[in-house]
Write a protein that binds this DNA or RNA. Structure first.
Lengths: 365, 365
DNA sequence: ACCTCCTTGTGCAACGTTTTACCAAGGCTT
DNA sequence: AAGCCTTGGTAAAACGTTGCACAAGGAGGT
């Protein structure tokens, strides 16, 4: 590929990249043999021949044309990643890990931001399919997968991330998620143990599986502590707010403002995730109260920023790196072997990380 | 592949996606005509014919095979995005915007995290090129582009984002960046106007263009205020720390710890970016000091989290959405027209956003 | 000597698209 | 009526791979 010193006619061909034919000619073999060297096992030829092919490839800087290969085989070394919004650091970090795993296996990652809009997801995944991509990590956690079902039935390998299996799911997929119920229970129990009894749950609309599960964990924990469900204070955003993914933080901030303005404001708040919790914290401060003292706040995810906040955020950690690696590995296996492991689920255990944003109930003011 | 209820033969073809031949047959025309309808202008045929083709396409749910198209034309509707780390919310947000612009034009975005490692970038971009991708947004801001030069000379369209033009740059590229010098000057002048005289600059190794420029703006502002360069306190990380992109925040935190432990600690700190500034703020608090009162901190970027921090972060805003759109638009034009606008640069004006993390110099303790 | 099998290859037909060159038929001009 | 555009459309050759089917040439068995 180099470039500088080519005066003889080879230039043009070197420019657009050598083909397998040129390699074959240079090595004095047929294209088939080169192909065999590259794909079938190289044991199919004399060591001497193999050496010549190797040398020719190296010398010409040959890289197989992916389009041609894909056209012929129907495969691409690309997986799709559909996240609500990569501007959320949690998804950013997830994308980083997924991409790392993919890179190590020679795969690439195609990024799609769906804002949890099913129609947008459908359109995206349709395109990915048309591009020959047969593996997708879908992170929207929508309860229904109907919008992508046709493709899954046609052979698309799907990993539903941050979403547990639901009745009616297609069989040809796997779910990878943290145990959101337990996670929310851990968070809520922590607040209860600190003595809180007026606890609010702040989220965007509860339209995704993970959010519903977290809510369930929250409610279960309250009930286990002998509180009635009516004691739960739930703030799920204005009805017109699509999913609260574009700006969860802003949503959290408004929520806190609302809640703190109320008659009998909560002494603790469980936020749907860390970004939301950071927004809630800001809202609490807006109201002139101190996070961790006047009001306890707990998040979910344990993004890097949780530890940098003031006070640092108590939260529920997801083993994200592991999950990302698992998602990719699974996808790769399915795509490469054809015929997928069907109906598997991977449920990871979350971990409570206690920091400064939670504390004992303040004396009544 | 698929499975369930295939009794009639047509199913198989519907499964793997219809081809242009099937569409042609269904419409009673030749493949060429269908192709003309799709690419050349549809004015090339009778309205009646066109209608039949349209109907056939709709009815069969035909989507052109990208691999075949790419093999034939050599083009793909994909641009590469190479960022230091998408886990940094700034790059996450940038990716979101770029992807939005791409989506609107029917393009996809391939995500690459380089950690500013030139070798990794080279390998990445080589692969993108081999994949037929002819447009890449490179965000590492490395002073030398030698590692990607061969490909650029062969026809790769490059947008160097967050990096101004350097002597020796290949001509076939454009630079899009905020004016980092002015930005850093704004930040520093703000601190000077508040009365600060002992000001520190915190960054990872100054190996990227944007960082050097920010540092220059910082130093210029000090000099303009009549301070000697020696008054500048510069903390650029341990020598063994590659670039400080993996964990800028952690770096900022350690930096603050170091600085605050010193004999004559600074009263204000300019951080290389917002993530770093958030880390610095955490470090300042670790040292038992109050951000915005005991120590002023200013960042760069204005990520969403800047406004959520406690206290909210004074910072320099980049018009990111505009820049992302410009980057994509340019790339698209180049890729589609072949032969690029050469040697152009786009330099955007930054804006100082004053929030609570900066304040007047505290009385000496 | 003949058949069989193994080794080390090669030839050729796809894969689904785009595009160049060509063609037929009708309408104008002269 | 001959020549020439124009219109509406087609045939066929690529693009660079892969993988099946086949082929020499030799080794081993009977």
């Amino acid at each position: 590929m180099g470039s500088r010193d080519l005066h003889q006619g080879a230039t043009m061909t070197a420019m657009s990249g050598a083909t397998i034919h040129q390699v074959a000619k240079a090595a004095g073999v047929s294209p088939s043999t080169v192909s065999n060297f590259l794909n079938g096992r190289p044991g199919r030829m004399l060591p001497e021949t193999r050496a010549r092919v190797e040398e020719a490839i190296r010398h010409l800087g040959y890289r197989p044309n992916r389009a041609a290969r894909q056209l012929r085989t129907g495969r691409v070394q690309v997986v799709g990643l559909v996240v609500p919004s990569v501007a959320n650091p949690f998804w950013g970090a997830f994308a980083l890990h997924l991409e790392g795993a993919a890179l190590a296996a020679g795969y690439h990652v195609l990024l799609c931001n769906s804002a949890r809009d099913p129609e947008r997801e459908r359109a995206y995944i349709d395109e990915l399919w048309a591009d020959g991509i047969r593996g997708v990590v879908l992170c929207s956690s929508l309860p229904s997968l109907d919008h992508v079902l046709p493709l899954v039935e046609q052979g698309l390998n799907l990993v539903a991330f941050d979403r547990t299996a639901q009745a009616g799911d297609p069989s040809r997929m796997v779910n990878i998620s943290v145990d959101n119920v337990i996670g929310a229970q851990l968070a809520t129990r922590h607040l209860l143990e600190l003595g809180h009894r007026r606890i609010a749950f702040v989220s965007g609309a509860l339209r995704s599986v993970n959010r519903r599960e977290r809510f369930r964990g929250f409610r279960d924990a309250l009930e286990n502590a002998g509180l009635s469900p009516d004691d739960a204070i739930v703030w799920s955003g204005a009805a017109d707010e699509p999913y609260g993914d574009l700006d969860v933080a802003g949503l959290g901030r408004r929520a806190a403002a609302d809640l703190m303005r109320g008659d009998d404001p909560p002494t603790a708040i469980v936020a749907i995730n860390d970004m939301c919790a950071l927004g809630v914290s800001a809202g609490v401060r807006d109201a002139g109260l101190r996070v961790g003292q006047d009001v306890s706040v707990v998040g979910f995810d344990d993004i890097v920023l949780a530890d940098l906040a003031a006070p640092p955020l108590t939260t529920v950690r997801q083993p994200m790196a592991d999950m990302a690696a698992a998602a990719f590995t699974h996808l790769r296996e399915c795509v490469e072997s054809d015929e997928p492991a069907t109906g598997r689920s991977l449920l990871m255990r979350p971990e409570l990380v206690v920091r400064g944003s939670t504390g004992p109930v303040p004396p009544p003011r």
